[in-house]
Design a protein around this nucleic acid. Structure first.
Lengths: 238, 238
DNA sequence: AAAATATTTTTTGTCGACAAAAAAAATACA
DNA sequence: TGTATTTTTTTTGTCGACAAAAAATATTTT
């Protein structure tokens, strides 16, 4: 975690009414990039020192984060960063796949040229991150790419749910991409390109097909990571 | 709005840590049954008097409600009860229909016998409310019936979204069922029965089909109400 | 030495106060 | 009379304090 205090954390620069939002954004970002580890306790008093503000706005930010499933609060107990729910990944995969399909289909129907430009810029950013082997950027831009497609679909219910699922996916991916040596399959880039093409061409069926294919890739990859044999002592003599 | 102060609103009975929750539940209920009208301002100070507590927990409850889209908060401005978004009903209908289908399908796959019993009890409650022409109860039990089906499907992402959509539907229906003279079509009861049967029989295709049919009915009815000619002076001589 | 109990410290939920921002009311000007 | 400006009042965001609840530590009992 960076010890540099950003401008939004210094009270001299903070306008009244912007406190809660600043804390919320900062903590959300740190939860998503696993700076704040799943299951770890959140210390309100430490946060008052860190953000130089009283506990009230910090608590309000935590209530907001709780509403998004990013932290877990119970009465009279420490708030904790939301654990990763390995037991119910099937639910996650099911919803993620459906949302990939639904949002990409809608984007093929409802997108504007400006949105296509933004989507393309994000895909370029994704290519750059892949080329640079910048894993955190790859994960973040990938999320933004798909979120932009969802927004182009113009159904806020789906966009909201999908963004939440993408954020959850971000945490999962960050758990496994812990070193810069991981290779990301070229197939992701290709599938993104294909997705863009379908959306540009307003080809709903193709959009649906590539979205489902892409989702399956991601699901398979996450599953592969979870089941990967990481036993260090499998061969020791007993 | 009832002026009777319930037990949870009296500080002598309220346990530490239960304040936010009590305010949240009460306000949520009042928003959903339109006691608190869409677009109306929320007066924090009045709520302190009403609930006999300070503004801090009331504000936290409002943050929570905002996270669920039930109120709208902006910095340095009064919180208002969420308006009904008539301009984007297409999005709502689309998502509602999909969630009816998805949750009912999953219920047909994943339900337990205990859940069937609960679903049946709710359907009975719905019948009773229809028989009694108790419109508020009808609207509320209908919501609970479908929410229970969703829970039987055991995917929390879908359940959460669906519950939110059902609540929104509740507000829409309450807007139109303002008198006890409205007749609710028998077709709703029949469709509920058919839904239960499909879920009991674990018939995914039938569940999907009846869910879609039911959703279309509801969408059509809401649309009919919105476009219904309710001008009170349409026939007066000028 | 382990378990149970008591005490102390820390953390959480809430309180009421202060002050910035917004809204309402009053006053001045054209 | 309508508009602009000023003043007053109200509301919102945050503060630091108090006390209940939980956690940690110390002491006593088995």
């Amino acid at each position: 975690m960076s010890e540099i205090i950003s401008a939004v954390e210094a009270p001299a620069k903070r306008k009244r009414g912007q406190g809660v939002g600043a804390v919320y954004e900062t903590l959300k970002h740190e939860i998503l990039d696993l700076t704040l580890q799943p299951g770890s306790p959140i210390d309100e008093v430490k946060l008052t020192e860190r953000f130089s503000m009283s506990r009230t706005p910090i608590r309000e930010a935590l209530v907001k984060l709780a509403g998004e499933g990013l932290v877990v609060t119970l009465p009279n107990r420490s708030t904790v960063v939301a654990p990763i729910d390995f037991q119910n990944l099937t639910q996650f995969f099911d919803a993620l796949t459906l949302m990939y399909r639904v949002t990409t289909r809608l984007a093929a129907t409802n997108r504007t040229d400006a949105e296509i430009a933004r989507i393309r810029a994000l895909q370029k950013g994704y290519e750059d991150a892949v080329g640079a082997k910048n894993v955190p950027a790859m994960i973040e831009v990938n999320r933004d790419f798909h979120a932009e497609i969802a927004r182009a679909g113009k159904n806020r219910y789906y966009t909201d749910l999908f963004e939440r699922l993408l954020d959850e996916g971000r945490r999962l991916l960050r758990l496994y991409y812990s070193s810069f040596n991981d290779e990301l399959p070229q197939i992701y880039l290709d599938e993104h390109d294909e997705m863009v093409r379908a959306v540009v061409d307003r080809d709903v069926a193709a959009a649906d097909k590539i979205a489902q294919q892409h989702a399956q890739q991601i699901v398979r990859q996450i599953q592969a990571y979870i089941t990967e044999d990481r036993r260090l002592n499998a061969d020791i003599a007993l």
